[in-house]
Measured scan of single mutants.
Amino acid sequence: MAAGGDHGSPDSYRSPLASRYASPEMCFVFSDRYKFRTWRQLWLWLAEAEQTLGLPITDEQIQEMKSNLENIDFKMAAEEEKRLRHDVMAHVHTFGHCCPKAAGIIHLGATSCYVGDNTDLIILRNALDLLLPKLARVISRLADFAKERASLPTLGFTHFQPAQLTTVGKRCCLWIQDLCMDLQNLKRVRDDLRFRGVKGTTGTQASFLQLFEGDDHKVEQLDKMVTEKAGFKRAFIITGQTYTRKVDIEVLSVLASLGASVHKICTDIRLLANLKEMEEPFEKQQIGSSAMPYKRNPMRSERCCSLARHLMTLVMDPLQTASVQWFERTLDDSANRRICLAEAFLTADTILNTLQNISEGLVVYPKVIERRIRQELPFMATENIIMAMVKAGGSRQDCHEKIRVLSQQAASVVKQEGGDNDLIERIQVDAYFSPIHSQLDHLLDPSSFTGRASQQVQRFLEEEVYPLLKPYESVMKVKAELCL
């Protein structure tokens, strides 16, 4: 049975990233139509530049190519590739079939990587351009969430054990800070992308030097003109047959890092959902379990974690691919890159769409948070109580021993009897502590235990987050809708 299948058929496997999760716009960027249309555009740009620099290419040939950029006979191309065992030459023939007058000058002087690699770089750039505003929107939604809850005390956790208090907004800023680093890295790697350009079979530009009869300047002009037509500021000066596969490492490393950030955020949300302090959106008709109707599973956060793990592992592909590119190139890269580049971007696209949807509907339960604080705060307040007693004339050592005994009794009630923490009640009825009984409410005010959390939130948002989001103001209103 021949390899390949009808990918629109229910009898043929289709990647869930495309069929179930990723956005239509990201799927289109990695589609065959987008790819092969870009090949034709690159052939047109090459012909236009070659004509401008004096090669015998007519206006009629150029116009014929322009008129057929979208006229792609995919069936013919597939048949040609089956016959020739070469995808680029299959599309040269297919393009030439609908451009008979231009057929002889299509791909003039070029090698397969002229269309293959340059198209990949265009796709990487455009895919990054799709991700950047999506990530900015996630940051914006979380920034709104953090600002609104900047002063809401909550129990902090280290080692997932109760620690000092923080605020809900401050905790959210930990998430935002990681995503801001990801946004900066995505922008950097996007701006650092260079075009492969017009380089020939081993990167020496020998074929173009021959076409222009040894004119170095025209060869350099050709490279520059096509690079500018493709919208790049610069091209690699040095290439082998391909652009260095280190570029793929750079791009997928940034995406993998984004995956790590999203995994951490969504894990926190899942843990908070278990504590009943916070939940992701839950639709009115949504079913959490087929057997347990009360369940409210954090399905979206779980999906993000599941896909983020996949995204983090994909960076190993370009690392290994770059390491086995012998001399000017081997074909070890080809099949692998067809999979890992598309999957990385479709996965990143999915987790950003999902995280935006989550961040637009996060639900906080202040009463649950308050109750958990009441359970733990008495123990945390013991040092403040000791200091207040010393100020009232008591002995630190005597007070410490009193607190120690009462704390152990209260802990026994919590752990052995399943009761509430009654340390404060014990202190309130103990005559030894009568000098500070009137101060206990103040000493137990949760806001006095959150330090500068709310001020940190305000400063972080104003100095770091809002300036970073400013270039994306025009796209901030787009909502994230999930079908599944």
Rank of each mutant, 00 (worst) to 15 (best):
A3W: 03
A3S: 07
H7N: 14
D11K: 14
A18V: 02
S19L: 15
R20W: 13
Y21E: 09
M26S: 07
F30W: 01
D32E: 10
Y34G: 11
Y34R: 04
K35A: 08
R37T: 11
W39N: 14
R40G: 12
Q41K: 10
Q41M: 09
W45G: 10
L46Y: 06
L46N: 12
E48K: 08
E50Q: 06
L53N: 07
L55Y: 05
T58R: 08
T58W: 12
Q61K: 04
E64R: 03
K66E: 03
L69E: 03
E70C: 15
I72V: 04
D73C: 02
F74N: 01
E80D: 11
E80I: 15
K82Q: 10
R83L: 08
L84P: 00
H86I: 07
H86M: 08
M89F: 00
H91N: 02
F95H: 11
H97T: 02
C98D: 10
A103D: 02
G104I: 10
L108M: 03
T111N: 15
T119M: 00
L121E: 02
L121Y: 10
L131Q: 05
L131M: 08
R141W: 10
L142A: 03
D144V: 10
D144H: 07
D144P: 10
K147L: 04
S151A: 08
S151Y: 02
L155D: 08
T158D: 02
T158S: 00
T158G: 03
Q161D: 01
Q161C: 14
I176N: 04
L179D: 00
Q184L: 09
N185T: 02
D191V: 03
D192R: 10
F195C: 09
V198S: 02
T201D: 03
Q205M: 09
Q205K: 02
S207D: 01
F208V: 07
L211G: 00
E220P: 04
L222M: 13
E228Q: 14
F236N: 11
F236S: 08
F236W: 05
I238F: 06
K246Q: 11
E250P: 01
L252E: 08
S253F: 04
V254I: 10
A260M: 13
S261K: 07
V262T: 07
K264W: 04
K264C: 02
T267E: 07
L272M: 15
M278H: 12
M278Q: 00
E280K: 05
Q286G: 05
S290V: 09
S290W: 11
M292P: 09
Y294M: 12
Y294K: 05
N297E: 05
C305R: 10
L314Q: 06
V315Y: 01
T321E: 06
T321N: 00
S323G: 06
Q325E: 04
Q325A: 08
W326K: 02
R329L: 04
D332S: 13
R338E: 14
C340Q: 09
E343S: 05
F345Y: 07
A348E: 11
A348Y: 05
I351H: 01
L352Y: 07
T354N: 07
S359H: 01
G361W: 08
G361Q: 09
V364M: 14
P366S: 09
K367D: 12
I373K: 03
P378I: 06
F379M: 13
M380G: 06
A381L: 09
E383W: 09
E383T: 08
I386M: 00
A388Q: 06
G394T: 02
Q397T: 07
Q397K: 06
R404E: 06
Q408M: 12
A410S: 14
S412N: 14
N421A: 04
D422F: 15
R426N: 13
Q428L: 10
A431D: 01
S434D: 11
P435E: 05
I436T: 08
L444K: 13
S448T: 11
G451T: 01
R452Q: 08
Q455W: 13
V457R: 15
Q458R: 07
Q458G: 10
Q458V: 13
Q458I: 05
R459Y: 14
S474W: 15
K477C: 15
V478C: 15
V478E: 07
L482Q: 15
L482P: 05
L482I: 14
